[in-house]
């Protein structure tokens, strides 16, 4: 019983970090119908930025989020403007897959050139600290990361629900044509949306760098996880991706601790298959377009 509860605590805290990464992924899909294969690479880029700020300038990894998120927001906007906006026609979805994969490879190449392929991680003094609560261990970094994810997701919610930009996003998600007729600048919404998605990757990257050793190739495993989370949650649903990330976190942690790590990812895929059999659009996938 003790092992089970410990595993659930670990799973929820880890799931929170994945929720943050996946929320950006699903937001981008919701707005642009682009499956962003570069999201994992952007997380790794965020981790390397945090690493550099920490080792060169001594900036605390959590504080560095204030620098990395705006930076990657701009990168995201730039990428959308230069590489995705020019795509036209019926093949946009397929083409964008290739373009975002190319971006991922490009980011990986640049990082390999700059940092080499050796594993690295961000190691502040408190990286391994944990509290003992009722006999259970709660890691400081994971706990703060979880809170941070909640804050970031809350901010994202407020932006989408309470701002003019958010209204434009939701309108674009529901019906891009009508939104444009009503004066919404679809290009602008797409660029800012991609920027927001990249910004969530930056925040998640700072935390990812403290929790895991990483190298420029780490994005392959990340993106496969993110895609399964987004599909389970329902493509385009931020709430769905949060729930799916928590389900994945808890399922893999509990199976790892109590059964075998070999089965942990597999279990998640079984859950994914079952959900898709019953609800082909995922847990919270919209029956009609527009439930972001």
């Amino acid at each position: 019983m003790h092992s089970l509860i410990q595993a659930i605590i670990l799973g929820i805290l880890t799931g929170g970090v994945y929720a943050l990464m996946a929320s950006g992924q699903t937001l981008i899909f919701g707005i642009m119908k682009v499956v962003n294969l570069a999201q994992g690479a952007l997380v790794v880029l965020g981790a390397y930025l945090t690493y550099t700020l920490f080792t060169q300038l001594g900036i605390d990894p959590f504080l560095s989020i204030l620098i990395t998120t705006p930076l990657l927001f701009l990168v995201g906007v730039g990428v959308q403007y230069v590489l995705l906006r020019p795509l036209h026609g019926d093949d946009v979805a397929q083409l964008s897959l290739l373009v975002t994969f190319a971006i991922a490879l490009g980011v990986e190449g640049v990082l390999s050139f700059a940092y080499g392929s050796t594993l690295t991680n961000v190691q502040p003094a408190y990286a391994n600290f944990s509290w003992t609560i009722l006999g259970y261990q709660v890691s400081l970094v994971r706990f703060v990361a979880f809170l941070l994810s909640l804050v970031m997701l809350g901010l994202l919610y407020l932006i989408l629900q309470r701002t003019k930009f958010g209204r434009s996003v939701r309108a674009t998600v529901q019906n891009p044509m009508s939104a444009q007729l009503l004066g919404v600048n679809a290009n602008r919404v797409s660029a800012l949306g991609f920027g927001l998605g990249a910004a969530t990757a930056a925040a998640a990257g700072s935390v990812f760098g403290m929790l895991n050793s990483f190298n420029p190739g780490s994005h392959y495993d990340l993106i496969s996880r993110l895609l399964t989370i987004v599909v389970l949650g329902g493509l385009g649903s931020i709430g769905g991706s949060v729930v799916a990330a928590l389900v994945m976190g808890v399922a893999s942690s509990v199976v790892s601790a109590l059964a075998s790590p070999i089965w942990s990812d597999f279990t998640f895929f079984i859950v994914l298959l079952l959900v898709l059999l019953i609800r082909p659009r995922g847990l919270f996938g919209a029956r009609t377009r527009g439930a972001l």
Binding site: L10, G11, T14, S139, N212, D221, S256, A257, P261, S264
Partner: peptide
């Protein structure tokens, strides 16, 4: 397996 904490908890 990136996160070894569940295994180490076992």
């Amino acid at each position: 397996t990136a996160d070894m904490t569940p295994i180490m908890s076992g």
